[in-house]
């Protein structure tokens, strides 16, 4: 391996705030979010794109940040779980997850809420089947998904009615 790994300069916006950083080319986006920006609401569960605990929105699309290099996010706009609330008020998706008891340990929840955000941005009234498909890449070990499905349906209703 080379003695010195050259860093790469990147610029990106996270939750509306602009950042300029120099990162190792091998740095993963999730490492940048958690370690460089201290946004620890984004979690790592499997390292291999299965579980979705690391899901964030990148230019509006839900991506698994454990399998995206930080350099690939150069110029991107990211939303993490910390960016969901507005002026201290929970986003309707956050509120629905709480109201439906859609979380237990809460480790998968940020990723699931961002996967939900992408789904509801494209489909205002998803069927149960569409919801299941949309969160197929998000593993939850606590809830058995029952109350998560309920939460997403509640969030859809709430956003539609707003």
């Amino acid at each position: 391996m080379p003695d010195v790994i050259e860093k790469v300069a990147i610029k990106l916006t996270v939750n509306g705030k602009a950042h300029s950083l120099e990162v190792e080319p091998r740095m993963l986006l999730v490492e940048l979010i958690r370690e460089a920006l201290d946004l620890t609401g984004t979690h790592v569960g499997c390292d291999t794109t299965y579980c979705g605990a690391c899901t964030v929105l990148m230019n509006g699309a839900a991506v698994k940040s454990c399998t995206v290099f930080a350099v690939q996010a150069d110029g991107a706009e990211l939303i993490t779980v910390e960016g969901l609330e507005r002026d201290g008020q929970l986003h309707p998706i956050q509120k629905a997850f709480g109201d439906a008891h859609g979380l237990q340990c809460g480790y998968c929840t940020p990723g699931l809420m961002l996967a939900t955000a992408q789904l509801l941005s494209q489909n205002k009234q998803p069927s149960e089947k569409e919801i299941r498909k949309a969160i197929a890449g998000n593993t939850c070990r606590c809830t058995g998904y029952q109350n998560i499905l309920k939460a997403i349906q509640m969030a859809a209703q709430s956003i539609k009615g707003a």
Partner: peptide, 23 residues
């Protein structure tokens, strides 16, 4: 009663403190 959980506020906001979050 099905009292809403006290835990929810921090966990929903991404403000939970898991061991890997400690530096």
């Amino acid at each position: 009663k099905s009292l809403p959980r006290k835990e929810e506020n921090r966990l929903l906001r991404g403000r939970g403190k898991f061991a890997d979050d400690i530096k």
